[in-house]
Design a protein around this nucleic acid. Structure first.
Lengths: 231, 231
DNA sequence: GCAAAAGTGTTATGGATACACCCATGA
DNA sequence: TCATGGGTGTATCCATAACACTTTTGC
């Protein structure tokens, strides 16, 4: 029993929770799971679980998220570690929170391991969550507001090809402010960060907008020249 | 033995390491300890240790730092959690790294618990450290470079009263760039963040400069009005 | 008087802001 | 032809950067 099961043994005092943001129709969403087993069955929470001895903390975060929600192949980044003594009522558990930004439409959700439901919630309509998960989510939202202004991470929330107005609406939803259309356009265009696709919107009841995409290699080139993304 | 010792029991899979930055004579330093016991005796490392069951992770960071170095009453902030499987060779240990900025002259160092030496090292003359501590330090230095430009945390590295030139030299040391004297002066003055003391430098072989201090409440007032610190 | 740092002034440039306006398209 | 959003033009203002200059002090 010993060595053979070592790889499945988890570190009991340490868990992972993930804050996954999505965006659609000018609104920001967060991914939540409903516990399907144990004393917390029926309660909503952030996707999360325990770390195995033979996987890195980063790897555990991906595994847990995919197992519970079917969301996969995204970029997860550490948010913060939450270590208050009483944060988990049953025993001493410290949690490492991760966050990610995804394009909501790309994922087919599926309630997996010990989860009875998975759903996107409007960021302004989140129910009471288990443990300190509402605090973790708030922290993640603040972090996102800050980070989106200094790094071009917002594009992960959009389809691969998007219009300038979509980006503007994304920033307005996250920062909870209003932006000037023409000034915002110009600022983005002048960065030389976005690549114009030779394509326009289709089936819209107004003049079709040009589509752009974010290109990682263009960004890296700019970075090498000392470019600093600022909105 | 059981309940009575519960409070002293540590979480084995989780440790803490601290990156403490100091500043003096236009140079940036980091605080290191030499292990005094066990198989790593004689090796330099970041101050660090294990978390007890009845203390928060934040509290553990303060306790460990003070026990090992005598540095106390400072503001520690989480840096990042390092969770690679092989980062600690003897067993699986995930570490939560913290960092802080202090005024080097304010502290009398003292090698405490299981430590044979404590010393400030010039950031550019750091020896090979135990485990992944050089990586943690590098990460901390990058983080500091970034953060110091968006939040007024650099003042923690200076004496309570300081000159504008001292701040300039602090930024030059951390960012590893050169700044224009008069433009930097003007920028800081125009923020209305610094409080001018009615006092000047003494015993200097040149015109004595006016002394300023950073006032937390002034900063909070500015924040409420929408002020954003940017250097 | 000289060295060294304090502190002021000036000008060119370019980005930020506000807002008026025209364009293209489907209903 | 109207509503909707796409997209351009422009005048004002203000921050930045480069750099020349004057002031104060100890030696």
């Amino acid at each position: 029993m010993e060595n053979s099961n070592f790889s499945e043994k988890v570190i009991e005092a340490l868990s992972i929770d993930t804050v996954i943001f999505g965006f659609e129709a000018s609104k920001l969403f967060v991914l939540l799971v409903k516990h399907g087993e144990g004393k917390y069955a029926g309660k909503w929470a952030l996707p999360g679980g325990f770390i195995k001895y033979n996987e890195s903390v980063d790897d555990a975060a991906y595994r847990i998220l995919t197992d519970q929600t079917a969301v996969r192949d995204i970029f997860l980044e550490e948010l913060k570690t939450f270590g208050e003594v009483q944060r988990y009522p049953d025993s001493r558990v410290i949690t490492v929170a991760y966050y990610a930004l995804v394009n909501k439409q790309n994922f087919e959700l599926n309630a997996g391991a010990s989860v009875s439901d998975v759903r996107w919630f409007d960021i302004h309509e989140v129910p009471h969550l288990l443990f300190d998960h509402n605090d973790i989510l708030s922290y993640g939202f603040s972090h996102l507001k800050h980070k989106i202004q200094h790094e071009p991470i917002g594009f992960n929330l959009l389809p691969r090809k998007f219009t300038l107005l979509q980006i503007k609406e994304l920033y307005e939803a996250i920062l909870e402010i209003e932006l000037d259309k023409s000034n915002f356009r110009r600022k983005l265009i002048k960065m030389n960060l976005l690549v114009a696709c030779n394509e326009k919107q289709k089936d819209v009841a107004h003049r079709a907008a040009r589509l752009y995409r974010f290109d990682e290699s263009v960004y890296n080139n700019l970075l090498r020249k000392g470019f600093v993304f600022e909105v």
